[in-house]
Simulated scan of single mutants.
Amino acid sequence: MSTPVLIGYFESEAQVLDATRAVRDSGHVLQDVYTPYAVHGLDEAMGLKPSRLTWVCFGAGALGCTLALSLQLYTSVVSWPLNVGGKPFNSFPAFIPVSFELTVLFAALITVGSFLVRAKLFPGNRKQALPRVTDDRFAIALSPRQTPEALEEAEQLLRRHGAVALDLKEVSS
Rank of each mutant, 00 (worst) to 15 (best):
A14R: 11
S76F: 11
V78P: 04
P36N: 09
H161G: 04
E153V: 00
V56I: 15
V84S: 09
A62Q: 11
A108S: 15
V104E: 01
V29Y: 05
G64V: 09
L17D: 06
H161C: 05
R132N: 12
A94I: 12
V5Y: 01
R132M: 07
L130F: 03
E101L: 10
G85E: 07
V23I: 06
E155C: 07
L73N: 12
L69K: 09
A107H: 13
L168E: 02
V33P: 05
G113T: 15
T54I: 15
H28L: 06
Y74Q: 10
L6D: 02
T111H: 11
P123F: 07
A45V: 02
L6Q: 00
F92C: 15
I7Y: 03
E152V: 04
E44Y: 08
S12W: 03
T20P: 01
A107D: 13
S51Q: 08
L116H: 11
A154Q: 09
L67N: 06
A38S: 13
R137F: 03
Q72W: 09
L6F: 01
S26K: 06
P88D: 12
S12V: 02
F122V: 06
L157G: 02
P144T: 00
L63H: 03
S143W: 03
L121G: 10
R118A: 15
G162Q: 02
